[in-house]
Amino acid sequence: MSASQSAVRSRAEAVAVSRTFDWMILFTLFFVVLGGYHIHYMLTGGDWDFWADWKDRRLWVTVAPIVSITFPAAVQACLWWRYRLPVGATLCVLGLLLGEWINRYLNFWGWTYFPVNFCFPSNLMPGAILLDTILLLGGSMTLTAVVGGLAWGLVFYPGNWPIIAPLHVPVEYNGMMFTLADLQGYHYVRTGTPEYIRMVEKGTLRTFGKDVAPVSAFFSGFVSIIIYFLWHFFGKWFAKTDFISDDEL
């Protein structure tokens, strides 16, 4: 498919074809990323993202950003390096959230009848916007990794707090104190998820009193920086054209 064998006859036609191509690529990329990222996130973040009673101030805050910065880093690397498009992270998170919402609404609620207020996904959008805008403004992958990676970890909790705060209101139930989220986990029976596999409020940050969320977020941000670097290289490697032999180009 070289230009000399011209499939188009005029510049206007070339522009139109190029636009069609844009939308097809974007559409394809969106769904490929949606599928890959969604599977990856389910395997690594899994229950922390599925259930309101796993969304705690220690482990969820730490784990979710670390395992979710992967695809944004890789797709950013590809789209920036090849096209100077600062939309990689946002594209990933839009895909992930769409996939998650379809899954939670149709399967968790529609098929298994878990209330949506118990199985909604975490919000990753603020971090994605920051990651993309930092890349645009700084124009540097290293800067994006360090500043963006840290921001990714730091804004995760604030970005979700307005959503989960109502579920952290305490309630007394049969002589014990629960948060409403705990009570959801107790009420809405999960035969496959016994209480002991719930990994919340575990860790060693006891010296920080009750303000562990910021500390967890900082830690998460630091690890996110490292993961960003790692996946950024995956992305670059993936975006190479070595896979296609020259005569195909």
Binding site: D53, K55, D56, R57, P126, I129, L130, D132, T133, I134, L137, V155, P158, G159, W161, P162, A165, P166, H168, V169, P170, M176, M177, F178, T179, A181, D182, E195, R198, V200, E201, K202, K210
Partner: peptide
């Protein structure tokens, strides 16, 4: 977009804490 994001986060943190002054950590053990 960047400043807007940070601004929204800051404001909604504040309004949420005002609306839900009493919250407790998840209970486990």
């Amino acid at each position: 977009f960047a400043l807007g994001t940070v601004l929204i986060l800051g404001v909604t943190m504040g309004t949420t804490n005002e609306k839900y002054p009493v919250t407790t950590p998840l209970q486990a053990g």
